[in-house]
Amino acid sequence: MDNLNNLYEKNQFNIKNKVDNLLEVKDLKKYFKTREKFNLKRYFKYGKKSLLDSKAVDGVSFNIKEGQILGLVGESGCGKSTTGKSILRLIEPTFGSVRFNGKTLFDVENKIYMDKNELTYLRKDIQFIFQNPYASLNPRMKIERIVSEGIKKHNIVSKFEIKDKCQEILSLCGLSKADLSKFPNEFSGGQRQRIVIARALAVNPKFVVCDEPTAALDVSIQSQILNLMLDLKDKFQLTYLFISHNLEVVRYVCDSICVMYLGKIVEKSKTQNLYSNPLHPYSRALISCIPKNHPSDKEEKIILKGSVPSSSNIPCGCRFNTRCPYKDKYCEIVEPELKEILPGHFVACHKA
């Protein structure tokens, strides 16, 4: 255990070149080409010219300070996971820029991209916890090989210490030495998620993107995984981007929150301020649907009418105007900008 602590202190806690924000995301966009429905004849006749832009992420900006947890919330399909993957260049972004620890990962406008070898080296500082622990683990690999892949790739320890390193990181995540020789199918969902976390932490990262790490787990297992992640954050001074649609979980885990709707951030604030005083109608609707702690707690739920528009057919003006109960004609024409209404509290709404 002491060896692991010394390794983290040596490789991770070098604050000589400390920057204000560990991660800076500016105007991030990711568009996908999609085929028009029921128009196959036009597709075969005109080819790619008939494809539409699906704006999965359309101008997202935020900063994360070292040691902080930023929550990214919203309905399914709003672009949360695509944002996380675009930041790490697991999928190539369409536009925008990302800086990590003072280094530019990419800047599409100025055609600046981090060199492939340098990006590979930097990936040990930026890790990803995928959403589905059943799909993110290779069923043909034993746990020792899964956890040790990153260790070998980045030469974290010598080849004689790899097994000991795997045992130490697994023990931190609540698993035993005997689990190294098992396959993923021999574990439960909660245990698999612990293995995914162990794999991410094995390379001594500074920043971890957590893509709904508890979505596929039972409630009792969710609390164990969340407590584990918070303990490891405090122990190794980790920084998290916590992607989730569970606002009750985000409330007690994150320092600040960004609310996404249809590819854009519509509100961002400190967690306490957002829950006590949500300013955007969409945020109010989400928070009103959180289950109450006691049957006597009565609060009217805001039921949104309609469904989320397609990202390839975004409405004019405010993107939320098709479901907003407070809209007017101005909302249908002019798209609101994300402005600071209160200190540290940003909202994209004409009525705020």
Rank of each mutant, 00 (worst) to 15 (best):
A135H: 05
T94H: 04
N101W: 02
L70A: 08
S148A: 15
G150N: 03
A202P: 14
V73I: 14
R89D: 04
C166E: 05
R145Q: 12
N132P: 01
T82E: 05
L137Y: 01
V196Y: 03
Y113N: 15
P139H: 06
L88V: 12
I126P: 00
F160K: 14
G189M: 06
F100G: 08
I112M: 09
S188N: 07
T94L: 11
I151T: 10
V108T: 09
G96L: 11
E92V: 08
D125S: 15
S86V: 06
G102N: 11
A202N: 12
I143M: 07
I126G: 01
S171P: 02
E144V: 08
A202L: 06
R99T: 14
T83K: 00
E92I: 08
L137N: 01
Q131F: 10
G79D: 05
E186Y: 07
D125I: 02
K85A: 09
C78G: 07
K111H: 14
G190K: 07
R145I: 08
L172T: 05
R123F: 09
S86I: 09
Y121G: 13
L122T: 11
R192N: 00
K153D: 03
S171Q: 13
S86H: 03
S181F: 11
V73Q: 03
Y121M: 13
G189A: 13
Q191C: 06
S148W: 05
E168D: 14
V73C: 12
K153E: 12
P133K: 12
E118W: 01
T83V: 15
L172W: 08
Q127I: 07
Q191S: 08
E149M: 04
L180P: 06
I146S: 00
P133T: 11
H154K: 07
G174R: 05
T83N: 02
F187S: 03
V147K: 00
F128V: 07
A198Q: 10
I112D: 12
F100E: 04
T104R: 04
L105F: 15
S148L: 08
Q193M: 06
P93V: 14
F130H: 01
N138H: 00
